[in-house]
Amino acid sequence: MSRAEAVPGSEAVPVEGTAVRKPSPLWTFGLFRSELVTTFRRWRTIALLGVLAAVPILIGIAIKIETSDGSAAGGGGGEGPAFISQITNNGLFLVFTALAATLPFFLPMAIGVIAGDAIAGEANAGTLRYLLVAPAGRTRLLLTKYATTMTFCLVATLVVAASALIVGALLFPLGELTTISGTRISFTDGLGRALLIALVVAASLTGVAALGLFISTLTNSGIAAMATTVGLLITIQILDQIPQLHALQPYFFSHYWLSFADLMRDPVYWDDLFRNLGLQTLYAAVFGSAAWARFTAKDITA
């Protein structure tokens, strides 16, 4: 059997006759950096980021064409993603619209792909054994994988926001903006809020990331892990729409996602934002520890 046994206490595979070298704390950063480089150099990751960057471009161009004859965006009746009717007056609103449009599906799907691939993908490619041969330890490897996924959350959100800001600045005027409460804030203040919103959106994805990582430790097939994560995501989004389940809905990880729009109120309405962040922390704690329990006790056969 070519199997790295899970021996608690000495998780790095011991070699006969040699003492196990204690990994230095700096090693974690080395591992993290190499994981980051591996993840972000994959064509798959670059393609995902490219698709995400294309969403604001599409929205921007569509609105520019639709409103070129002077009509209001979104049919004027308030349809379409949040904030869409304000884009023609202020390009900064494209950032909010793009995030509102990508948050329900595109962003978590990309996260699901990266998180689902984290462990199962390595197992599938037969490289997980070699990662564990290095004196990193399973817990440390898992943490590194989670940190990499989180970094991807942040990068993906910032890519959407930056792309939207560039497109918005090119196609539409910028300047003072009106909050959804009707008060005015300066453009700098607006930019600050946009950055804060991007951070909140990235934080909203931590729950899915932890869930994906846990699923990834359950299987040796990267595709299965990705499909399950994305499938769960869609299921939860559908369940969140069924009114009869309203008692359960506050506990769905996607329930408070759109609360980031509350940052555009004046004064900011914090209740749902805090609820969202608390819920994401809870999901990260539950599924993170479940992933740890599973991964540190798992037989690594590939």
């Binding site: 899970a6 608690p8 809870l282 539950v286 479940a290 740890w292 329990a293 599973r294 540190t296 006790a297």
Partner: peptide, 15 residues
């Protein structure tokens, strides 16, 4: 060993 492994799942359940 199985018991030790199962014991780890106490953590997520406790959370």
């Amino acid at each position: 060993a199985g018991r030790r492994k199962a014991a780890r799942y106490v953590v997520p359940v406790a959370v």
